[in-house]
Every structure is written in structure tokens, then in C-alpha cells.
Lab assay of single mutants.
Amino acid sequence: EAHAAIDTFTKYLDIDEDFATVLVEEGFSTLEELAYVPMKELLEIEGLDEPTVEALRERAKNALATIAQ
């Protein structure tokens, strides 16, 4: 499951495998979680700032909209 989540994140969020791995290690496994989890939870991840989190959430929401079509 972790590998599938990493693949999904790299494909749809335009991030590298290392960043995707950090997200999975922090407990995220779906685009929905990244799109809708409280921003505070993402900001608790070391190295993430508000602009990065906002961009990540926007990419996740856009990916979900694209997949739904």
C-alpha cells in the first residue's frame, strides 16, 4: 500500500519520491487526505511551510477533480 501511495503522489502531485515517502511515513496514503486534512496537520511535517502546503493541497484537489472526470 505504501508503494502505491508513493506512486500516486509522485504522479499526481508532481513531487519526487523522497517527498512522497515522507508524506506516507507521516501517515498520508490518499490524495483525499492531503486535499482535506486540516492544514495544521501538514504544517507539523518538518520542512513544510504554508506556501508549500497550500500548493500541495491545491494539486491534490486538482488531481481528484481530474480523476473524477
Rank of each mutant, 00 (worst) to 15 (best):
L13I: 03
L23K: 00
T66P: 03
P38A: 06
A5L: 11
F9S: 01
D16T: 14
L43W: 05
F19T: 10
T66G: 10
G47E: 04
Q69C: 08
F19D: 03
I45R: 05
E1L: 09
I15D: 01
A65N: 11
A65E: 13
F28L: 07
L56D: 00
A60P: 00
E17C: 09
M39Q: 08
D18M: 12
A65D: 11
Y36V: 11
A20Q: 01
G27L: 02
I15T: 02
T30P: 01
L48M: 14
L31G: 01
I45K: 03
A60Y: 00
I45F: 04
I67V: 08
E41S: 09
A68G: 11
L13Y: 00
R59L: 08
P38G: 08
D18N: 12
Y12N: 04
F9Q: 01
L48V: 10
I67N: 06
E26K: 15
A68K: 13
Y36L: 12
D14E: 12
E41L: 07
E58T: 10
G47F: 08
R59N: 08
D18G: 15
D7V: 08
R57Y: 02
F28Y: 14
E32H: 10
V53W: 13
F9M: 05
A55I: 11
R57M: 10
M39K: 11
G27A: 02
P38K: 05
E17W: 14
R57P: 04
L23H: 00
D14S: 08
Y36P: 01
S29I: 12
D16P: 10
T8M: 15
H3K: 15
L42T: 03
R59E: 04
E41K: 13
L23E: 00
E54D: 09
I15E: 01
E46I: 13
T21I: 12
E41C: 11
T21Y: 11
R57A: 06
I45G: 03
V24G: 01
L31M: 05
L13H: 00
A60H: 01
L23F: 03
L13R: 00
D16V: 05
E25I: 11
M39W: 04
K61T: 06
I67S: 05
E33D: 13
L13N: 00
Y36Q: 11
G27E: 01
E44H: 14
A35M: 11
Y12V: 05
P38Y: 02
L48N: 02
Y36S: 15
Q69H: 10
K40V: 12
L48S: 03
S29C: 09
E33R: 06
E44Q: 15
L43K: 06
A2P: 10
E46W: 10
E44I: 12
E58C: 06
D49A: 05
E26N: 15
T8H: 12
D16S: 14
L23D: 00
D18E: 14
E44P: 05
A4Q: 13
P38H: 06
I67R: 06
D49V: 04
F28C: 02
V37C: 10
A20H: 01
D49M: 05
I67Q: 07
E50F: 13
L42C: 04
V37T: 13
E25V: 10
A4S: 13
D14Q: 08
E41D: 13
D16M: 07
L34M: 06
D7S: 06
D16Y: 06
A20K: 01
D16F: 05
T8S: 09
A65K: 10
A35K: 02
R57W: 02
V22Q: 13
L42A: 06
L43S: 05
K61C: 05
Y36N: 15
E33A: 08
Y36W: 11
A65L: 09
E17K: 14
A60I: 08
E54H: 07
T21V: 10
G47T: 06
A65R: 07
A2G: 12
A5E: 03
G47N: 07
E32A: 10
E50G: 13
L48R: 02
A68S: 11
L64P: 01
I67D: 06
R59G: 07
L42G: 04
I6H: 04
L34K: 00
V37R: 15
Y12W: 15
D49Y: 05
Q69G: 13
H3F: 08
I45E: 01
Q69W: 00
P51W: 11
L56N: 00
G27K: 02
L64K: 02
A2Q: 15
E41A: 09
A68F: 03
E46P: 15
E17D: 09
A63P: 01
A35H: 03
H3N: 12
E54P: 02
Y12K: 00
Y36R: 10
N62F: 04
Q69F: 00
E58K: 10
T52V: 09
D14T: 04
L34S: 00
V53P: 02
K40Y: 12
E58H: 06
T52K: 10
A2V: 11
F28M: 04
N62Y: 05
F19G: 02
R57F: 02
A20S: 04
V53E: 01
E33H: 09
T10G: 05
F28R: 01
S29D: 07
A60D: 00
Q69M: 05
K40Q: 14
I45D: 01
Q69L: 04
T10K: 09
L42Y: 05
E33C: 08
P38V: 04
A5I: 15
P38C: 07
T8R: 14
A63S: 05
F28E: 00
A5F: 08
T8V: 13
K11N: 07
E54G: 09
D49E: 07
A35D: 02
K61P: 00
E50L: 15
E44Y: 10
A68W: 02
E44G: 14
L64D: 01
P51C: 09
A55H: 09
A60Q: 01
M39Y: 06
A2L: 13
A4E: 10
D14Y: 08
E46D: 12
A55T: 10
M39D: 07
I6S: 03
D49F: 06
L23W: 00
N62D: 11
